[in-house]
């Protein structure tokens, strides 16, 4: 398992390869389709800095006094957001997106061009992933959006992720698809 600390520098991202298990430590930001569309329409994200990571997820949390705690934070499908991921790299210097599901050509090209990665985390495993969140720093745009749609700034420790697309133009899903197709042919139906 490789350890990755945020903010991520370009040379670090270049060293990550497809299929590698990574333990992530640092600050990540959750984003939902509504926020992606806001960015697409030219909206600003002042809290995002170069080398940060985006997590496609809808957290379930509770507010105790002024402090938010988190119960569950399972990943969302990245697939519908495929065409909009590049904008995050271009405009805010984001170095990666965590989610679930397959990503196609647009993300593959964007990762190669901007030395970034797309990651896969454990689909459905809300409580486990929440146990790796050490602190909720802030919940941005909560006054405008539903709590699950807002941008949660999460401080994570040893957050388990797998490299799905690396900066060298390789996609784990493409590889597995090739393997499974070949094995299907070998079954000689």
């Amino acid at each position: 398992m490789t350890a990755l600390e945020l903010p991520a520098a370009v040379p670090t991202m270049r060293e990550l390869h497809v299929g590698e298990q990574v333990a992530l430590t640092g600050t990540i930001f959750t984003m939902r389709p509504a926020v992606y569309e806001y960015v697409h329409d030219g909206g600003e994200m002042p809290f995002l800095s170069e080398g940060s990571l985006i997590y496609n997820a809808s957290p379930v949390g509770r507010k105790k006094g002024k402090k938010w705690t988190i119960d569950s934070v399972a990943p969302d499908h990245s697939t519908p957001l495929d065409s909009m991921i590049k904008e995050l790299f271009v405009r805010f210097g984001v170095r990666g997106v965590i989610g679930r599901g397959e990503l196609g050509k647009p993300s593959l090209e964007a990762c190669r061009q901007y030395t970034s990665c797309c990651f896969h985390t454990i689909a459905g495993a809300g409580p486990l992933l929440a146990s790796h969140v050490k602190n909720v720093n802030e919940v941005h745009a909560i006054e405008k959006l539903d709590p699950s749609d807002a941008v949660w700034e999460l401080e994570v420790e040893d957050f388990p992720i797998v490299v799905m697309i690396d900066s060298h133009g390789q996609s784990l899903h493409d590889m597995i698809r090739d393997v499974s197709n070949r094995r299907l042919l070998n079954l000689q139906l």
Binding site: D71, S72, A74, G126, P127
Partner: peptide, 18 residues
């Protein structure tokens, strides 16, 4: 990780996925 998720969920009485 999948097994650990169930252990965490059962310990804290949380849904295994929301």
């Amino acid at each position: 990780w999948i097994l650990e998720n169930q252990v965490t969920a059962a310990a804290e009485n949380l849904p295994i996925t929301p």
